[in-house]
Design a binder for these strands. Structure first.
Lengths: 151, 151
DNA sequence: CCCTTGTTTTGAACCAGTCAAATCAAGGCG
DNA sequence: CGCCTTGATTTGACTGGTTCAAAACAAGGG
C-alpha cells in the first residue's frame, strides 16, 4: 500500500522519503493524531526520527493538501488525512477524543453567514463540543459517588 | 457605569477588585481582545498590573460566565463579553481581525449534527475563515504589482 | 475594626511549535 | 551506473503564550 502513498507524494510534487511514508502510515492508523503521537508511532518504522522532522513533514503534507490540520481550542494540533470533503468534528471536553461528522444540514448552510461584515469567506469550520460516550459514563459514576442520582 | 460591573461581579459571587474592573473596561472597549491587549489597556487604569493577574481575572470571568474565551487556530486566545447568545465569528486569515456573526440559519441547526457518534453535544462552535475588507484590498494591490489584473 | 478567605503578586517553569545552519539523500541527467 | 542539484532531514537553540506555586495582600462579612 505504500505504493499508493508514493504515487500521491510524487503527484503532489514531493519527494518520497522514509519519514513521509512513516508519517502517512501513522496518520492512516490514527485518524486524528497529534504531533507527539505521530512521532512516537513513526519511530516504529524509523527509530531516529526527530520531532522537528515530523513537523516539517506535516507542514509539507498540509501545504499540498494531502493532510489537514485541526486545532481544537486548548489542545495541541491534530492532523488527519481526510481532506476536501467539508466534514466537521466532535470534540470531547473531557478526554479530547475527536470524531468526524458530515456537515449537518446537507451541503453547507454554514458557509453563508447572514452578515459577512465585509469579509470574503472561504471556509466554515464547525466544532461540536460535548462528552464522548466513555466520558459520559465516567461523569455519571462520579456524580453517583457524590450523591447525584442514585439507582 | 462601573457600578454595573460591580453588580455583575457580586451577583456572580466574585469580589470587586480594581484589576477586574479594569479588565472589564478594556473588554468593553475592545470586543475581541487578546491577553496582551488587555494587559496594556488595563495598565492605563492600573499601571502595575501583571500579566498573570490578567490571566487570573480572565479565568475568573470566564468561569462565572461573564466573559467567553475564543481560540482561533494559530493565534493567541481572545476574550469577549458577549456571552450566552450563541453567536459565531468571522476571522481574517491575513490580519487576524475578528467580527461577530449571528447564527446563520436562525436558531441553531448547527447544534444538531446528523450523527453524534455517541457524543452528547452541548455547544456548536462555528468559525468562518476569510479575508476582511482591508486585507482584500491589500491582496488585490499586491497581485497587481505582480501582474494580476491591471487597471 | 478584625479576621477569613478569595485575589493579586512575584517568580519560575512549561509546552507546542518555530527558526537557522549544516548534513544528507532523492531522483534527473549523462 | 554514478554525479549533481535541490529539496529534505537533522541538530540545536530558541520563542511566545500560558500555567503553576508560594507568599503578600485586600475585600467585605461579622
Amino acid at each position: 500500500m505504500e505504493t499508493t502513498w508514493t504515487h500521491r507524494l510524487r503527484e503532489a510534487g514531493l519527494r518520497v522519503t522514509r519519514p513521509r511514508l512513516s508519517v502517512l502510515d501513522v496518520l492512516a492508523a490514527h485518524p486524528h493524531a497529534d504531533a507527539d503521537t505521530i512521532v512516537t508511532g513513526a519511530r516504529a518504522q524509523h527509530p531516529t526520527l526527530s520531532p522537528q522532522t515530523v513537523y516539517g513533514v506535516l507542514e509539507a503534507l498540509v501545504s499540498v493538501g494531502l493532510a489537514r490540520r485541526i486545532e481544537p481550542a486548548g489542545a495541541p494540533a491534530l492532523f488527519e488525512l481526510r481532506v476536501g470533503d467539508n466534514h466537521h468534528h466532535l470534540v470531547c471536553r473531557s478526554c479530547g477524543a475527536v470524531a468526524d461528522v458530515d456537515c449537518a444540514v446537507g451541503a453547507a448552510p454554514c458557509l453563508s453567514p447572514s452578515d459577512t461584515a465585509g469579509f470574503v469567506v472561504d471556509e466554515a469550520e464547525v466544532v461540536f463540543w460535548g462528552l464522548c460516550r466513555r466520558c459520559q459514563v465516567t461523569a455519571a459514576e462520579e456524580s453517583e459517588t457524590v450523591g447525584g442520582t442514585p439507582a
